[in-house]
């Protein structure tokens, strides 16, 4: 039993294990790295003999044809580098944009369908007969967590697809009309873009100031207001198009462009009046039974002030902005 003591033989037995680990990076090659003729040479010194033969067989084993280029280690390295670069870029974008606006919240606004867009355009241009204006909510798993349905499933939800497309269309259309008049300059594109964007910014500033002064704390976000401030471009586009069409056809006179504009403005103002109700006039549930008459009257006056602000915002301020945008 004591004839073969383990310490004498153990160094050659345990020695190959780190060697095998060190050869692992060289073995990271295409999936069929070893030709079937070569058996797995296990641990030990046989591995070192097998390495040169395996590398020699590697060049001949993989055919340099078209199908083999995916297995090419260079291509794989390229793929991996591209993937990691993409991931890094995406992370960078998410980090820098996510600081200001969350991308997932933006995705909610672009979740639209064809029928939604058609119906919404119809509502923006003809809002008189539309009946339920309230947004639908859905309960999440816990009842305290209520979120609004995306535009795909709820016609009254604000989206950002229509405002964005309308903004781009407005810019292109106004420059096109200037070109038809023979007044096209390349700078006109930039002028119109900054003007339209600053109109939207000014409008959001106004409504933010109004909500601050009136102490309206609703759960709606800034992005809702951005979306709602963009819907007026639809009316502006329609009025611009019809005005230029009628002037081309020599139909009517200056009055018909005013009629079209007044109709579009009224439709847009009515749409905003109804849609912004839930932003500016949130349902204030009574705090308690002991509120008393004082709370009632204060909420009454508050509510009337809010209603006046809503009216002024959606009629007077919109009138100014739409007039401004329509004068190309």
């Amino acid at each position: 039993m004591y004839q073969n003591p383990p310490p004498a033989h153990s160094p050659p037995l345990h020695h190959p294990v780190p060697q095998h680990v060190s050869t692992v990076p060289q073995l990271r090659s295409p999936p069929p790295p070893q030709p079937p003729s070569q058996p797995q040479s296990g641990y030990g010194y046989g591995q070192q003999h097998a390495m040169p033969a395996q590398q020699g067989a590697y060049g001949g084993n993989i055919p340099p044809a078209f199908g083999g280029f995916i297995n090419d280690p260079t291509a794989q390295l390229g793929f991996q580098m591209g993937k990691s670069a993409m991931n890094a870029g995406q992370e960078y974008v998410e980090q820098n944009f996510g600081r200001f606006i969350s991308v997932s919240a933006l995705k909610h606004y672009f979740n639209v369908s064809n029928t939604y867009v058609a119906n919404k355009l119809w509502i923006v241009l003809f809002p008189w007969r539309h009946r339920p204006w309230s947004r639908q909510q859905r309960m999440a798993n816990n009842p305290s967590d209520v979120f609004y349905l995306p535009p795909r499933e709820d016609i009254n939800s604000p989206d950002m697809y229509i405002p964005m497309m309308a903004l781009v269309t407005y810019i292109l259309l106004s420059t096109l009309l200037a070109g038809l008049r023979g007044a096209f300059k390349p700078e006109l594109l930039g002028y119109t873009t900054t003007q339209a964007i600053s109109v939207m910014l000014l409008e959001i500033l106004i409504i933010k100031l109004g909500t601050f002064l009136l102490n309206i704390s609703s759960s709606s976000q800034l992005l809702d207001l951005v979306a709602y401030s963009g819907y007026k471009f639809v009316g502006v586009i329609v009025s611009l198009l019809l005005t230029s069409l009628f002037s081309q056809l020599n139909f009517g006179g200056a009055w018909i462009s005013w009629v079209v504009f007044v109709y579009c403005f009224n439709a847009n103002a009515f749409f905003l009046l109804r849609s912004l109700r839930y932003v500016l006039l949130p349902e204030s549930n009574p705090q308690g039974v002991g509120g008393g008459a004082a709370g009632y009257t204060s909420s009454r006056s508050q509510k009337s002030a809010r209603t006046q602000f809503l009216f002024v915002y959606s009629y007077v301020i919109q009138l100014g902005f739409m007039l401004w945008l329509s004068k190309v």
């Binding site: 900054t194 003007q195 964007i197 600053s198 000014l202």
Partner: peptide, 13 residues
């Protein structure tokens, strides 16, 4: 038409 852009908005604010 008086041009009012982002610079004008900045100046205004």
């Amino acid at each position: 038409m008086v041009f009012f852009g982002l610079g004008g908005l900045l100046q205004f604010s």
